[in-house]
């Protein structure tokens, strides 16, 4: 339950309210984690928040988090500069089933900041790209200025082994890309539904509608995975805050197969 002090190596602004934090790895052997897991970040005297890990699992020398400023702790994290310290506990939670997806097509659907916890899975797949079939990323944000990892998306889009589409909910001015919610991208993607694993992360309502569309396409229920968000205080399944029906999200999740949460999604205030 005690955070380990950790030094900031660099920070960079991603969008108006979102920034990425690179921390020095905790031990000699580096920081090892699996895509989809999260850390608890502690700001001295202010508090602690769960933040998913957004870095490359094959680069253990640093710990990378992409953070949106939404409250006093994330505001405290934003104020950190190179060589400042924060406390860190983790990694916690269940990972994306990247290994299970080997031999299948992979469709990743991300909404807004939901791209951050999926990025380690993207790194992981690209690192052994030959082991997977078609690889699709569908990403939707509010507006053009909210697009996360802009340069990186451009680089990825230049690859011939990566089918990547971006859309925005609303657009003004010079935007010439797609406009519409992320589900409108699904018809653009080509994959073999029966042999596809889908990884989804974003607001709950976005995940619900995405699942409906993917099911319509024919992806089996047990091959759809989502990452849930709840109030996580302890990260180790002891404080009770993050319950979602029978699930303790910090321990049993955040990544769940759709089949495990199907009956709970859509029930109000559960």
């Amino acid at each position: 339950m005690v955070p380990v002090p950790c030094r900031v190596m660099r920070t960079y602004q991603e969008t108006g309210d979102t920034f990425t934090l690179e921390l020095e790895s905790l031990s000699q052997d580096g920081f090892s984690f699996r895509p989809g897991q999260f850390n608890m970040l502690y700001i001295h005297g202010v508090g602690e928040v769960p933040i998913s890990i957004s870095g490359d699992p094959h680069k253990p020398e640093s710990v990378v988090h992409t953070v949106r400023v939404v409250g006093i702790v994330t505001w405290g994290i934003k104020k950190l500069r190179r060589r400042d310290f924060l406390g860190i506990r983790g990694p916690f939670g269940t990972p994306w089933p990247v290994d299970l997806a080997e031999g299948n097509d992979v469709v990743i659907v991300a909404g807004g900041i939901g791209l951050a916890p999926l990025r380690p899975a993207i790194y992981d797949i690209l690192a052994r790209r030959e082991k997977f079939g078609k690889f699709v990323l569908l990403y939707g944000t509010r507006g053009p200025s909210d697009i996360l990892y802009f340069r990186q998306l451009e680089d990825w889009r230049a690859r011939f082994d990566f089918d990547l589409h971006v859309t925005v909910d609303r657009a003004f001015g010079p935007w010439k890309g797609n406009v519409g919610v992320v589900t409108t991208l699904i018809p653009k993607a080509h994959f073999d539904p029966v042999n596809t694993v889908a990884l989804i992360c974003g607001p709950e309502v976005m995940m619900r509608f995405t699942i409906l569309e993917l099911l319509k396409k024919g992806i089996p229920e047990d091959k759809i995975f989502i990452s849930m968000e709840r109030n996580m205080k302890c990260g180790i399944g002891l404080c009770g805050h993050c319950q979602f029906g029978p699930h303790i999200v910090c321990r049993d999740g955040p990544v769940f197969p759709y089949s495990a949460v199907r009956h709970l999604l859509g029930i109000r205030e559960i």
């Binding site: 005690v2 002090p5 502690y42 001295h44 406390g87």
Partner: peptide
């Protein structure tokens, strides 16, 4: 009480 965090000269020490 779970832990105490000490901030000294820009470093952090956290003791259970």
């Amino acid at each position: 009480h779970l832990f105490r965090s000490h901030r000294r000269n820009g470093t952090l020490e956290i003791l259970e």
